[in-house]
Design a protein around this nucleic acid. Structure first.
Length: 229
DNA sequence: TGCCAGGCCGGGT
DNA sequence: ACCCGGCATGGC
């Protein structure tokens, strides 16, 4: 199993090259993107981010100063704009009130502590927290998402009942052969590769297309659909 | 046209 | 401890 997961990376990497992810010019922008992309396609998030940039408000202080309605309208293309405006505010409020308006300070400490800190913010769940930790904070915290679950389940690497923590443990325990910056890059790119696979090949209702680089890892070539049971 | 997208929260059992 | 409805736009 562990070997399978590492082999999967080599196959994806061969197909896509190093993804050099996450889209975002600054750590703060990455955090904003992490909240905006909740249950939403990245395309819509790009347009919301573009609005924030065009309005020159993509900074901690500026967002902090915006009214709810101003913020909500700017991020409208990302969907759930009222909810997400509230969540962005909760995030920047916490930064300002508890961490001296400094992202850097938010990320100081061991990964477990910082993760708890993030999860305590209303609107920041496991995936959002791990995305911030891994891509903005430089912490070794593996990101699990809907793609990860779908791909792992399809390949028999987890059951239908696997929850976030189970999948994260699986990844962490299987992909921890490297150290330091090398592992950080590995985990960042691994998740990026899964997203690429998910966007390209592993859609919910799509059968296998015969093109997916992970196809050779399937336990049973005759099993071509998600919903077998 | 309906279904889906890189979740998370709050209220009800 | 689960289960579920709600949240909303844009792309195919």
């Amino acid at each position: 199993m562990k070997r399978e997961l590492r082999k999967a990376y080599r196959l994806m990497r061969r197909e896509f090259g190093h993804r050099n992810w996450w889209p975002g010019d600054t750590p703060f922008e990455i955090c904003v993107g992490a909240i905006l992309t909740q249950n939403t396609s990245w395309k819509n998030v790009e347009s919301a981010i573009a609005n924030l940039k065009a309005a020159h408000v993509l900074t901690l202080r500026k967002i902090h100063a915006l009214s709810h309605d101003e913020l909500a309208q700017l991020i409208r293309p990302a969907g759930y704009f009222n909810v997400k405006a509230r969540r962005l505010r909760a995030f920047v409020d916490t930064l300002v009130e508890q961490h001296g308006a400094s992202l850097k300070r938010l990320f100081i400490g061991n990964t477990t502590t910082v993760r708890e800190r993030l999860l305590a913010i209303n609107g920041v769940g496991p995936e959002t927290a791990d995305s911030m930790l891994l891509y903005a904070g430089g912490h070794h915290s593996f990101v699990i998402d809907a793609y990860t679950k779908r791909i792992f389940e399809r390949h028999g690497w987890c059951g239908n009942d696997a929850d976030y923590d189970a999948l994260q443990s699986l990844c962490t325990d299987s992909l921890n052969q490297k150290r330091g910056a090398e592992e950080l890059d590995y985990w960042r790119d691994y998740h990026a590769q899964l997203v690429a696979i998910g966007n390209r090949y592993c859609k919910p209702r799509n059968p296998l297309c015969g093109q997916c680089p992970l196809e050779s890892l399937l336990p049973n070539q005759t099993c071509t659909r998600d919903e077998q049971s």
